[in-house]
């Protein structure tokens, strides 16, 4: 390691891309972990020891971020200078808002002791889980599209998708909490 890698993709020696082969990434993680394990530098100079330690810590961060498709996408968006974006640039679709509103009403009813609301919440939870699955499929398609085109338009779409997914994720959590 003559100089430290510029980003987490470079740590693994790959381009900034999204559709990663996870088993291959994991294999590479083990190889690099072994190669730069601090124990192997026990007799090296203090400067080399420090470099190995720095790289290992960067490698761990890189693996943590890149192995998860969501954090990987968020990381790449940030690298490309795209902030998460607010609701003005990515307004949620109206039919989703209706669902969110109805779920919140049902949660409120459940809290006030109306047990009938449970069925409604369960139904909403299942719809949100299905929606999340669909978004994950769409996300994988966008990953492939980005790697092929490297275009800003795909990143915009991806950013919108991640915002919607975060929204759904919060709703799933609220519904599951209420039902547990």
């Amino acid at each position: 390691m003559s100089h430290s890698p510029s980003d987490y993709f470079a740590v693994f020696g790959i381009d900034r891309s999204l559709a990663l082969n996870l088993p291959e990434l994991q294999r590479q993680f083990y190889v690099l972990s072994k190669q730069f394990h601090p124990d192997r530098f026990a007799r090296a100079s203090a400067a080399e020891q420090q470099r190995a330690l720095d790289f290992t810590s960067q490698l761990n961060d890189a693996w943590r971020i890149l192995r998860d498709p969501i954090s990987r996408a968020e990381y790449l968006l940030k690298l490309q200078g795209m902030e998460p974006g607010d609701s003005r640039t990515n307004p949620p679709p109206p039919e989703l808002l209706e669902e969110v509103f109805d779920l919140n009403m049902a949660l409120e009813e459940l809290r006030s002791g109306d047990t009938h609301a449970r069925d409604q919440i369960l139904g909403a939870l299942n719809r949100f889980l299905a929606l999340r699955d669909q978004l994950d499929q769409d996300r994988d398609a966008l990953f492939v599209r980005y790697d092929a085109n490297r275009d800003a338009a795909t990143l915009q779409d991806l950013r919108g998708l991640l915002n919607r997914r975060r929204y759904i994720e919060n709703l799933v959590r609220d519904a599951q909490q209420a039902l547990s």
Partner: peptide, 13 residues
């Protein structure tokens, strides 16, 4: 009018 903010989960009718 039904609006919402995904980042905080707020929804307003």
């Amino acid at each position: 009018g039904m609006v919402g903010a995904p980042e905080c989960g707020d929804v307003m009718k």
